[in-house]
Computed example of a mutant assay.
Amino acid sequence: MLYERSIGAVVVFAIFVLVVLGLSFYLGRRAKSAKAYYAAGGQIHWFVNGVAFAGDYLSAASFLGICGMISFFGYDGFLYSVGYLAGWIVALFVVAEPLKRMGRYTFADALDNKFQSRGIKLTAAISTLIVSIFYLIPQMVGAGVLMQPLLGFSHHVGVLLVGVLVITIVVTAGMVSTTWVQFIKGSLLVIFCFILTVMILNRGLTTQPVDEAGRPMPGFKTTTLAEVASNPNLEILPEEGSWAKKPYVRVVDKTTKEVTVWRKAATGDVLSEAQTLTVRNGKTFANGRPQGHGPGDGDLRPVGHVVSLPGGITRTGAQGPAEYLRTLQDSQMLLWSKESLVEADGAKTTVYYSKIT
Rank of each mutant, 00 (worst) to 15 (best):
M1R: 05
L2D: 12
G8V: 15
G8M: 14
F13W: 07
V17L: 13
V17F: 07
L18K: 04
V19I: 15
L23Y: 03
R30G: 00
A31R: 09
K35H: 01
A39K: 03
A52C: 10
C67V: 14
C67I: 14
I70R: 06
S71L: 15
F73G: 03
L79M: 12
S81G: 13
L85A: 14
I89G: 02
V90D: 03
P98F: 14
M102Y: 00
R104L: 09
Y105Q: 03
T106N: 08
A108L: 08
A108C: 15
N113L: 15
R118N: 12
R118Q: 12
G119K: 06
I120R: 01
I120C: 02
K121C: 03
I126Q: 00
I133G: 00
Q139M: 05
Q139G: 07
A143K: 04
M147N: 05
Q148S: 06
F153H: 03
H155N: 05
V157A: 14
V157T: 13
G158I: 09
V166A: 00
F183W: 09
I191Q: 04
F192S: 12
F192P: 12
F194P: 03
D211Y: 00
P216D: 06
F220H: 01
T222V: 15
V228S: 01
S230G: 00
N231V: 06
L234F: 01
L237K: 05
L237Y: 04
P238M: 08
K246T: 04
P247M: 03
Y248Q: 04
V249G: 04
V251C: 04
T255Q: 15
W262Q: 05
R263I: 13
A274W: 06
V279Q: 13
N287E: 10
G288N: 14
P290A: 13
P295F: 14
L300E: 03
V306A: 08
A318L: 08
Q319L: 15
G320R: 04
P321Y: 09
R326M: 11
L334M: 07
L335R: 01
S337R: 10
S340N: 08
L341T: 07
L341N: 05
V342N: 07
A344T: 02
T349E: 10
Y352P: 04
Y353P: 00
Y353W: 00
I356E: 07
